[in-house]
Design a protein around this nucleic acid. Structure first.
Lengths: 139, 139
DNA sequence: CAAATAACCTAGTAACCCGATAGGGTATTA
DNA sequence: TAATACCCTATCGGGTTACTAGGTTATTTG
């Protein structure tokens, strides 16, 4: 299951991508438009900023804004920041690999074999989609 | 993330599929072979039996056994029983659909659009794999 | 300058789920 | 009839999630 954090994060990015310009948008605006709890959203936008997707401006007229083109923002990157590992098991994760304590021989494990296939197809889909793709190229 | 329940369940099914015959196997045997907590495994095998994958025999010489051919056991079915919905969001689930409370228009939702693609490719992979495929056709 | 604004930070918490365990009951078989 | 092994219910600690509270810091505007 996708966490609310990831879901909200993607919705916020989409909201910003659909804006006609790249001027700062306040969190309260995004919060109201997308029905996201304000304080929760703040923490999400903060991590998206630290990850290099968003810029921020303080004070009046401040807010968050995209600092990359939507077509250059790949969904795998977004999800890795917000959700963590994409694989359904640590033993098939590329970026967060961890051996199973119970499994003596990974190459004989049926679950491993299956989940590698799931991981690969998920990575392909998420790697093919950019923010522009899912937001639509609204001008 | 895949739950331990699902992981253990698939491993138990695989263990039974790799057996040379279809005679009942005691839970303690499976528990020790696959390093799964006995009591936890019991509850998992029980739900697999109720779902029609396994048969059981009580008393001495009893245990659990496969009642279908491994090649007729599709992984989507197994995972739906053990894990629940395959989709990463209720609003893109075929079997457990639920509307998002925050989303006014599903067809405009970028997260929805993305997760439908993930769901479809995951369903394809899981639907193409049978228990025989992942266990290997051991005789 | 000062007041307003809005991002930023730290901490906490209630609810929930997972994995596991305990302690039996019940049916079957040797 | 005693042993076996499935079957059922309840519980519980630990961890995560989603969210809230309350303040600090930086910037801008009157």
């Amino acid at each position: 299951m996708l966490s609310k954090k990831t879901k909200y994060g993607i919705k916020a990015l989409t909201y910003l991508a659909r804006r006609p310009d790249r001027k700062p948008v306040q969190t309260t605006i995004i919060s109201q438009s997308e029905n996201i709890s304000l304080k929760f959203l703040e923490s999400i936008l903060l991590s998206l900023r630290k990850a290099g997707f968003l810029g921020s401006k303080k004070g009046k007229g401040g807010g968050y804004y995209l600092i990359r083109e939507p077509k250059n923002i790949i969904m795998t990157d977004v999800i890795r920041i917000l959700e963590g590992p994409i694989a359904m098991l640590p033993c098939v994760s590329l970026n967060y690999y961890e051996k199973c304590s119970d499994c003596p021989n990974e190459s004989l494990c049926a679950v491993n074999k299956l989940m590698i296939q799931v991981r690969d197809c998920t990575l392909r889909v998420l790697g093919e989609n950019t923010l522009e793709d899912i937001a639509g190229s609204v001008k």
